[in-house]
């Protein structure tokens, strides 16, 4: 079992995010319309948002539960945000290496990841000079290089045009198949979900 999540959190006077699912290996898609709290669920799995009740388990490890709340920096989540969220004061190289200190030699090195994602020629650029697709590939690379035990992807294709979507989707398939990391993937696009997911969790 990859993800075993049962979380509930009040988001306002009459808004609540609640979801329960467990899934096998491969890519698990959180699917549903905008505003049902898919991103909040990812944030709770990453440790950036604290559930009111419930549990978060990934693989055999409990990240959140009774008397357990692993801090975000020790969850080893490779989080790819919808808006890439690159650090504006680091060049692409600095962004890629920001989390690399914890990976400890496992998995791919910086050069391999840069090749794998086709961003080797961007290493000396500042994030603000990148196109949407380039920024998203750097964000995926940054997450992969942080030595993650699982990946969280929040609509990584949302800000891209059709050609870029195909390209990044191909990359995600390669990450899924070649690296074998469990992926929790948020989307509101049925086509994407059908192509990528082995488990689909409907929200809303």
């Amino acid at each position: 079992m990859s993800f075993d999540v049962d979380v509930r959190r009040r988001m306002g006077p009459d808004a609540e995010v609640a979801v329960r699912f467990s899934s096998g290996p491969g890519l698990t898609a959180l699917f549903g319309p905008s505003g049902v709290g898919k991103t909040s669920v990812l944030a709770m799995v990453a440790g950036l948002l604290k559930p009111d009740t419930g549990h978060v388990r990934v693989g055999r490890e409990t990240l959140f539960g009774e008397r357990v709340d692993v801090p975000a920096d020790r969850r080893a989540a490779g989080y790819v945000f919808q808006d890439a969220r690159l650090f504006p004061h680091y060049r692409v190289r600095g962004n890629l290496l920001y989390g690399a200190r914890r990976s400890g030699g496992q998995g791919m090195g910086p050069a391999e990841v840069a090749d794998f994602l086709g961003i080797a020629h961007l290493l000396d650029r500042w994030p603000r000079t990148l196109s949407g697709g380039e920024a998203q590939r750097v964000a995926i690379g940054r997450a992969l290089l942080s030595g993650p035990r699982f990946l969280l992807m929040d609509e990584p294709l949302a800000s891209l045009d059709a050609a870029r979507r195909q390209e990044i989707m191909g990359l995600i398939e390669r990450v899924r198949d070649e690296l074998g990391l469990p992926i929790l993937y948020v989307s509101h696009d049925r086509g994407e979900v059908e192509r990528l997911a082995s488990t689909v969790v409907e929200m809303g």
């Binding site: 975000a72 920096d73 989540a77 650090f87 004061h89 920001y98 200190r101 940054r142 030595g147 969280l152």
Partner: peptide
């Protein structure tokens, strides 16, 4: 602050986020 959150998920403890993200920005 979302950049600080991103840094946390990349394995940076709060003090490192402070010195490498908050202060430089």
């Amino acid at each position: 602050r979302r950049l600080e959150g991103a840094a946390r998920t990349l394995g940076a403890p709060p003090w490192r986020v402070f010195w490498t993200i908050t202060v430089p920005l």
